[in-house]
Design a protein around this nucleic acid. Structure first.
Lengths: 354, 354
DNA sequence: ATTAGCACTCTTGACCGCCGAGTGCTAACC
DNA sequence: GGTTAGCACTCGGCGGTCAAGAGTGCTAAT
């Protein structure tokens, strides 16, 4: 009996999965609980509503679907969505037109800032949700060049250029006045010495070598290093992301209650929660999903986040993705995020080759 | 008869104005149409509801109030608000605590970018609406210093510093390669020659003197000027504003319909309409209001905008303000905007004196 | 194992009537 | 003549009822 049951359960499972898949696709399409009759008609499985009701009861026991009230159809739960995206979904290849749109949108500029901005705009316009792109993390940028510009006697404008093409400005106050030629000398020294290092590495070395210079009573050296240290300071992490199309989320009646939406928008301006999440998904390879409460952040518990890391110089530099309602068209969104990440990677790459 | 009527009408008007004032204050307070009985109780005028009904009928004829339906109280129209803010409102002086909050919030930083950002945050938190601060207009900034940094043989990073303390970076491509010393020479020349001019003036001169240099076959000069011209280019207007607390607007049930709110938010990201408005109110002295449809922009027709220009170096540099529902506490908001503008002015001033 | 049938549940929208708030008008009042 | 009391009227909002529709769970038959 047990043996029989196992084998039968397997076949049931396959069928149940198929039904779950159809149910979720259906629910994503029109946002209403799906009933047994609808499923019986559209599943392609030639089963009567009654049979399907039995299967639904099983799925409900497994926690994959739930019904909002006694006499409504079923809607997927978070676990249901999870199973769907992990094993059931059939991804829709991206239409050529949209790929072209992405390509042209991302090849136009050499400035990484603009590139990041267009990527997030493209994501939002292709998915009709909110797109976001994390700015390359400061730690992982590589140092290329630093310059000091006197603003007043004891105030300097420092300009930091990375290999990736980013430019950072910062005003620092110094203890004593330097002549322009001294400043040039400082800059030259730093540029020769540290060019090509990652910010993180550079920071480490700066600290170490500053110690050394002080011991050696090498004033000049120590001063230059101290100034550089003030600019490189990893505390000013510069971690940030760019977002576009937040207002798209207002179209989803999933967020009909204003306060939920407000909470979400606030967490977009707060940034730290989102950054945490993005940071976490830097490590993963390929597309990653956070469905509903999976993210662990209350503000996002009605949303899903689809992310993919992008590379510069074959090292992971950042993450991009979209935010939308849990009930989103995963089959379309996943490829979009995936391809956008790839294209952004190459767009940033070619820039460097120039 | 006519003479008498005029005199009586005058006295009626005074009373009517008083009633209009109380009505608007009341409506602003709790957002519901105000009826004759309420007014009779709270106006302090010791009039019966019936009399007040007559006055209301007059006010309605004058287009200052309207009733949403036959048996509701009256609500102010745009003209009603206009009359209110122009002649009736008694402004509430800002509490010392809030002034201190503003002062500490605005004196902490020397960087104009940060200053602008905190000003808009302060505005939003003090008014519980959306605060915005327009960035000093490029044209009106004064040139202080320019530097050229070679990135690759024919690509230069240009750094532009204004007297106001802003730093602008831009990457430009040049036709031929220059040696570092040539670049320094260019920069020196430009800095000596143009320092202290407004961008607008500088641009004019650049064009003129470039012509001259070409005629004189002064290659070096012409090249330097051409490079500068690429950086100064007023087309890249850099007009922009910083906004904070948009989500506050979601709390007002005045914007209960999502699409209205969305339109508004979209116009915030679009920016040009808002910039137009802000630009227009740069000329006005002191606080200026756009109530409802007065702004002329559809997206803003449920909102009011309260603005005030701020100065740097006793020249108008930009505008700041708040956006909120037409039904906002003008008596509190107007002083807040006014004082914030003054404090931002001094905060930016002292910066320069340093 | 599957299905048909049936009773039951729950939501939704329409309809109804009532209450309260407020108006406009008229006639009386000072 | 301005002001007021009184009265009829209007309208939105609220609660209740009702029927229709959709969907379920269970049972018994296939």
């Amino acid at each position: 009996m047990t043996v029989k049951k196992v084998s039968s359960e397997l076949s049931v499972n396959e069928r149940a999965q198929q039904l779950l898949k159809v149910l979720i696709e259906r629910y994503i399409q029109d946002g209403e609980p799906v009933g047994s009759r609808t499923l019986s008609r559209d599943s392609g499985l030639d089963l009567s509503p009654a049979t399907i009701r039995n299967v639904m009861a099983d799925l409900e026991d497994l926690g994959l679907v739930s019904s909002p009230h006694t006499s409504a159809g079923r809607i997927p739960t978070v676990s249901g969505y999870r199973m769907f995206v992990d094993t059931l979904v059939t991804l829709k290849p991206l239409e050529a037109g949209k790929i072209r749109q992405l390509e042209t949108g991302l090849y136009s500029s050499a400035d990484p800032k603009i590139l990041v901005e267009s990527a997030s705009k493209l994501l939002s316009s292709l998915t009709h949700m909110a797109g976001l792109v994390m700015i390359p993390r400061r730690k992982q940028l590589t140092f290329r060049q630093i310059e000091f510009l006197p603003l007043s006697s004891k105030r300097l404008l420092t300009i930091l250029v990375t290999t990736e093409g980013e430019v950072h400005n910062r005003v620092i106050d110094v203890r004593k006045a330097y002549t322009p030629s001294q400043l040039v000398q400082f800059a030259n020294m730093l540029n020769q010495h540290y060019s090509g290092l990652s910010m993180e590495e550079m920071h480490k070395r700066l600290v170490r070598e500053m110690e050394q210079a002080r011991k050696d009573m090498n004033q000049i050296m120590a001063q230059a290093l101290e100034m550089a240290e003030q600019v490189i300071d990893p505390e000013i992490s510069g971690d940030d992301y760019v977002m576009a199309g937040q207002t798209n989320l207002m179209d989803f009646n999933d967020f009909s209650q204003m306060n939920k939406l407000r909470e979400l928008f606030d967490s977009f301006t707060e940034k730290n929660e989102i950054l945490h999440l993005l940071d976490g998904s830097m490590l993963a390879e390929g597309v990653q999903l956070f469905i509903g409460e999976e993210s662990g952040y209350k503000a996002l518990d009605q949303c899903s986040l689809v992310t993919a890391p992008y590379q510069v110089d074959s090292k992971v530099a950042g993450v991009l993705g979209v935010v939308g309602p849990t009930r989103m068209a995963y089959d379309r969104v996943i490829p979009i995020v995936d391809i956008t990440a790839r294209l952004l990677s190459t767009a940033m790459q070619t820039r460097k080759a120039k």
